[in-house]
Nucleic acid binder design. Sequence first.
DNA 1: CCCATCTGAAAATGAGCATTGTCAAATTCG
DNA 2: CGAATTTGACAATGCTCATTTTCAGATGGG
Lengths: 211, 211
Amino acid sequence: MVQEGRSYGGLTREERDAQRRQRLLETAKEIIGTQGYAATTIPGVCAASKVSTRHFYEIYPGKEDLFVDLYDRITADSYARVAASLGATAGEPIFERVPAAVLAYLDPMLKDPRVARIAFVEIMGASPRIEKLRLDYRETLVDIVGTECTASVGRGEILDRDWRFAALALVGAVTAIVYDWALHQPRSSREALETQLADLALVLLTADPPR
Amino acid sequence: MVQEGRSYGGLTREERDAQRRQRLLETAKEIIGTQGYAATTIPGVCAASKVSTRHFYEIYPGKEDLFVDLYDRITADSYARVAASLGATAGEPIFERVPAAVLAYLDPMLKDPRVARIAFVEIMGASPRIEKLRLDYRETLVDIVGTECTASVGRGEILDRDWRFAALALVGAVTAIVYDWALHQPRSSREALETQLADLALVLLTADPPR
DNA sequence: CCCATCTGAAAATGAGCATTGTCAAATTCG
DNA sequence: CGAATTTGACAATGCTCATTTTCAGATGGG
């Protein structure tokens, strides 16, 4: 059981736990992002993290919770980037804001293929709880797109449409493309991909079907 | 061990095996498409199928093989529909052919939410072998799109572009949207969704970015 | 220095399956 | 009919973890 807590190795209990949690998260990113969630075991993560299983269960209730924590952090990071991007482009036309926000969101996945695999593949259908988490987060994203685009419609920049449909299409398309890009070697430059992704976002949110 | 085989219950060995396989596949569709692959157990599938585990292992080497067989059949069905659709619209403009082919592909998923879940969610990252299967099948699809569109470019109907990128975007977008539609109740009519999907396909394959 | 905490390693426990084996009853065919 | 097959139910096995517990040693406050 966890006692009151006193200093050890020059660190407080909180600091020691934080370091162990940090190592666990880093290892989880490596193993889940490389071998997949199904192939991930607690003893495996603990061994690679230099954390005893006893300490693991002092930090997390179970295996699923580590994955949830990892995914929460990845998502929170991307969402913060989106918020920052939207804040930085406030007042600019939607043609600037949306592509910038999309690329801000994707930055962590473009930098690290393991993150792309976790956020776009391993997260899917891993468990009922995690699936709900994924869908809830995505709903937030859909709402953001809807809000921004509706405001843009009000400014007369674009025509109104089914924003939920458009947002889901954007998320799905971007997911498939980035994961594919992260997987393949050799691949086009990140700059080239970002140009294509920005164009894609614009097309999906503003193009009229060529009837 | 499996003997030479003789009639039993008025059926040959092949027929008996085929019926058991049929029941297993139907049950697997129900359980995987409802509870998810991770929550699927052999004893569970066998009990619901009225097939003993002993017979299961006479038909399939293991659990993963049942899933592979199920996914193979689902995919083969969709691919056959695509081929039939493309054959039926031969000679027509790409603006007719592609939306028709996309809807042909999606028909089984639009008819049965369990199929949508299996093909679009449960299949992802289930295991290395299954993930490879998914990516290989998707590559075939990408090739088909590329072939059709390149031919259309030759006919002067559309401008050339990165067809692999466009195809991946289309597949990713359609996947996310159809699964979302299959999941939500209440939802728009199938006809309305199909119109949106057809427009989406055209936009992704033919629209120029509004620079 | 003394003792309560804390730590890493490793063993112990136990659950949940996948997979295999047993067997009595049912069926077929010579 | 009677031997050989086939069947379904179910017991038995074994393995892979998740989770808990043990324990000897390290550390720190008083």
